Computed example of a mutant assay.
Amino acid sequence: MTTTLFRRFVLAAGIVFCTWSATAQPPRGPFVISPQVHADKKVTFRYLAPSAKEVKLGGSQFGAAQLPMTKDTIGIWSITVGPIKPDIYPYSFTVDGVTVMDPANVSFFPNERFKASLVDIPGETPLIHSMKNVPHGSVTYEYYPSVEGSTGSVVVYTPPGYDQQQGKKYPVFYLISGTTDTEETFFKVGKTNLILDNLIADGKATPMIVVMPYGNPMARIAEQKKQAKPADIVGRDSEDAVTRAKLFETDIINNIIPYIEKNYRTINNRDSRAIGGFSRGGGQTLRTAFSNTDKFSWICCYSAYLSPQEMDSRYKNLIDNPTQTNKDFKLLWVSVGSEDFLYKSTVEFIDYLKAKNINHKSLITGGGHTWMNVKDYMAQTVPLLFK
């Protein structure tokens, strides 16, 4: 074959391949932009569903609970709401009665039960979780040998300079997310890495490692054994809740902490370990710290509590000797929103600590059981740690 004929053959083959590739691709609908955040803090949400009879926006945390959307001539449903107060919010669509995430949005809320997308409304000045022009740490996904032969997973934040300063060791903050959340939630929704980056850059926080574990090892065991996940806990004070918290405590004390201290440059003493959590993770925080006073000096409880009955029966040693307890814990923080469904029980826990002369810091804010509040609580407690 001559050179000219060969080139013609290659060109023809290329045309045939490109034609086949184009025709082999599935048909695509119109390009959809959603969410679209406007300069005035209003937001337009869009969803492509030409055959749907009804689409609603589910954004209750920014005042848009099940709002009907309008369909245009090509099948894109849309609605504009706001202005919305700057923050990060979950939302979803209900399409003919079925709740779905926004397929046009790559930002989502990691959770075992519900699936939601996230919309970030920026402030006129950068919020504490905003991406700023500061040195940034790293986020790593780790796998470790966990309870009952399972494999566990954690998300680990290391501060700016960790890889460069090979001789430096760091304190560790173990941070546990809420009921049905995953190990990714503090990272992807709570923006832990960006909050730490910003606080460290401002000189407000001690550089630290943050370890974000999965708080439901029983579900992970079931999943890896190809079994159905256990039902959600009924009753935060129930024996089932205590049993599951004990399994998590076993995991973090016997598996997670040793794994982190083997594989990261950590300062391995109680004064260099903090533990905190939200909702179920807050209850796990209290139970783990109160049962292992030799492991943690810093406790951060967000929107959670232990009942006076549990405190009296399980942690009598702490209550009967408040002087020693106050020496053991450099920080015991409890915070909750006034609209939180756990508000009453959390305030009762705060009053109990006060009556028993247990030193603590408490914060009551507005708002409910939301990650908007959690980011605020974390941003306020991180500067107090390891001082």
Rank of each mutant, 00 (worst) to 15 (best):
S92G: 12
L306E: 08
T243A: 13
V43C: 11
N359E: 11
L385M: 02
I267W: 06
H360E: 06
N216G: 02
V139S: 10
D232N: 15
G82F: 12
Y214K: 00
S291M: 05
Q224Y: 00
T151E: 11
W298I: 03
I121E: 08
L331I: 05
K354I: 06
V242I: 14
P27H: 11
L247P: 10
W333R: 03
V98C: 08
A64N: 04
L286E: 14
T125G: 10
L385Y: 02
Y47I: 03
I200T: 00
G283H: 03
L363R: 07
Y259T: 05
P126H: 06
T80F: 12
D102W: 03
Y91K: 09
A245C: 06
D102V: 06
M378F: 06
D197W: 01
I76Y: 07
T23L: 14
G75Y: 14
I256V: 15
F187E: 09
S297F: 08
N193L: 01
N269H: 07
K356D: 05
T80E: 12
P50W: 02
D72V: 15
V347Y: 04
E183G: 03
I33N: 15
G337T: 10
L196G: 01
V234N: 11
K188N: 04
V98Y: 08
V95G: 10
N255P: 15
L175Y: 01
V139K: 09
T266H: 09
A289R: 02
V155N: 06
I275T: 02
E112Q: 07
S307A: 01
F17R: 11
I128S: 04
F278D: 01
V242T: 12
V234F: 08
V234S: 13
K71C: 13
D102I: 05
G277F: 03
L331R: 04
V156Y: 06
P50F: 02
D237S: 02
S107K: 14
T3G: 12
L194F: 03
I319Q: 04
V334H: 00
G59C: 04
E124I: 11
E223I: 01
S153I: 14
V234L: 11
D96Q: 13
T23P: 13
D181S: 03
E223H: 02
D351S: 09
F296V: 06
G167P: 08
I257Q: 12
P50H: 01
P383G: 07
G215H: 01
I15A: 15
L318N: 02
L67A: 04
A104F: 08
V37D: 15
T70N: 13
I252P: 12
F93R: 05
G235L: 03
S297P: 09
T158W: 02
S34T: 15
V134P: 07
N373R: 08
Q324W: 09
A222S: 00
A355M: 06
E142V: 15
D271C: 08
V37M: 13
F186V: 00
Y141I: 15
T73I: 15
I84C: 12
A22Y: 14
